[in-house]
């Protein structure tokens, strides 16, 4: 039986708990070092399918306040698709008025996740 351990730092919150994830045959059997449930979820996911929230900006037209609109993926996307998400947003322009939470780009890169505004403009 192949047993391996992975040492990680939890990125869920600023505490940055040191995690030890143990895998057997590629399957997670335990997560230790976490101080909350979210740490365990992170530990499991990070060694199998790491994901991240992507935050960036797109230009916004017609706003008297803003040149740029800050946006984020509404939930996390696979880590390896971060640059694809950036690429997909490269030519997106938003049009004012925009409210927080408005979808700027739906289902980005077929991840099933929308890119939404994090600011009103």
């Amino acid at each position: 039986m192949a047993r391996e351990t992975c040492e990680l730092t939890c990125i869920n919150c600023p505490l940055g708990c040191p995690l030890v994830v143990t895998l057997e045959d590629g399957k997670v059997v335990s997560v230790t070092g976490n101080t909350c449930k979210r740490g365990e979820v992170y530990g499991r996911k990070e060694v199998t399918n790491p994901t991240r929230i992507v935050t960036t900006t797109v230009p916004v037209d017609g706003s008297d306040r803003e040149r740029m609109l800050s946006v984020k993926t509404a939930s996390d996307v696979p880590k390896e698709s971060i640059f694809a998400v950036m690429e997909a947003l490269a030519n997106v322009r938003a049009q004012a008025p925009v409210q927080i939470g408005d979808v700027v780009l739906a289902n980005v890169c077929d991840t099933g996740v929308d890119v939404v505004a994090t600011k009103s403009a």
């Binding site: 800050s70 984020k72 927080i100 994090t118």
Partner: peptide
């Protein structure tokens, strides 16, 4: 978990 502008809003 919020972004800075969302927190400010």
């Amino acid at each position: 978990e919020l972004t800075g502008p969302e927190y400010a809003a």
